[in-house]
Simulated scan of single mutants.
Amino acid sequence: MKWVGALLILAASTWLGTAASRLLHERPRQLRQLKAALRVLEAEVMYGHTPLADAADRLARQTAAPFSELFARFAAALNAGETSAAMAWEKSLRAVWEKTALTQGEFEVMLQFGATLGQYDRLTQQKQIALALAHLEREEAEAVDHEARYAKMAKSLGVLAGLLLVILLM
């Protein structure tokens, strides 16, 4: 019975380490997805002269989860016409953010970006998108660095913490 408990403890701690490593791996991937989505949004608004709600609806179909849900909620809120674009963006962002692997820094960048949506002319909007992309580039570089440093360590730490706990309990 002791051995079964020891194996369960070891499996649980290994799973926790792997989950932490997976989050570190997901963050740079999701940042790349978000940057690609913002570039598409920029192209739709600047060169396609697409209304913001239609552009968000197209982005919802083109991007992967969780950002497809973000843009779908944003498009639905804009089409409902209940709030401003900034408020619709903030509500959509808050509703979807927990499903991402992104951090508070990225959340602040996206909130600041959303505050400018629909407020300016096309040229100024393009500059705001470029500013958000520059911030996300910096965050992505940091995320890649964190992944390289800590992903393997998180897996190893999960296994080693489980072994330590098993040894202490035996």
Rank of each mutant, 00 (worst) to 15 (best):
P66Q: 05
W15P: 03
Q62K: 07
E44Y: 12
V144D: 03
V40M: 12
S21F: 02
A134Y: 06
L59W: 04
Q30C: 13
A148I: 05
Q112Y: 08
L133R: 10
M170A: 09
E140W: 01
A53C: 12
A143E: 06
A56C: 10
R73D: 14
A80Q: 13
A6V: 08
L8A: 13
L117V: 01
S84N: 12
F71I: 05
A101F: 06
D145H: 07
L93C: 09
M1H: 11
Q62N: 04
A60V: 07
S92M: 09
L111I: 14
R149S: 04
R122K: 14
L41Q: 04
M1C: 10
K152N: 05
A20C: 12
L165N: 04
L38Y: 02
K2A: 12
F74T: 05
K127I: 08
A101Q: 13
Y150G: 03
A6P: 10
A77M: 09
E98K: 13
L59N: 00
Y47D: 06
A115E: 15
S84I: 04
A6Y: 03
L34P: 12
G118A: 11
A6M: 12
A56G: 12
P66T: 04
M110L: 11
A20P: 00
V45I: 14
A134Q: 08
L7H: 00
D57K: 08
Q62E: 11
G114P: 06
F113C: 06
I129A: 03
K99E: 15
D145C: 04
K152S: 14
R122N: 15
S13P: 04
Y47F: 13
Y150K: 05
R27C: 12
V45M: 13
Q30R: 10
L168D: 07
A151N: 02
L136V: 10
A154M: 07
F113D: 07
G17R: 01
W3Q: 09
R39E: 11
A36R: 09
A36G: 09
G158S: 04
A115T: 11
E42D: 04
R27H: 14
S92T: 07
D145R: 01
A143G: 07
E137N: 07
E137W: 02
F67L: 11
I9P: 03
R32V: 10
L164M: 10
A75S: 15
A55W: 03
A75E: 08
E139F: 04
K99A: 14
P28H: 06
L78P: 15
D57M: 10
A55V: 13
L41E: 02
G81H: 05
Q104C: 07
A80M: 12
T124Y: 13
A141K: 00
G105Y: 00
F67A: 02
Y150H: 11
L59S: 03
Q128L: 08
F71H: 07
R138G: 09
P28I: 05
L131D: 02
A134I: 01
L163C: 15
L160A: 10
M170S: 10
K127N: 08
A6R: 00
A154S: 14
A20I: 01
L41D: 01
L117R: 00
A60F: 00
H25G: 15
H135G: 07
F74A: 05
E108H: 09
L117E: 02
A20D: 09
D145V: 03
L117A: 00
F74G: 08
G118F: 03
K91M: 15
A77W: 00
L16K: 00
P66V: 04
W89M: 09
L111D: 11
R32E: 15
W15H: 02
T50G: 04
A88D: 05
R138E: 14
V159C: 03
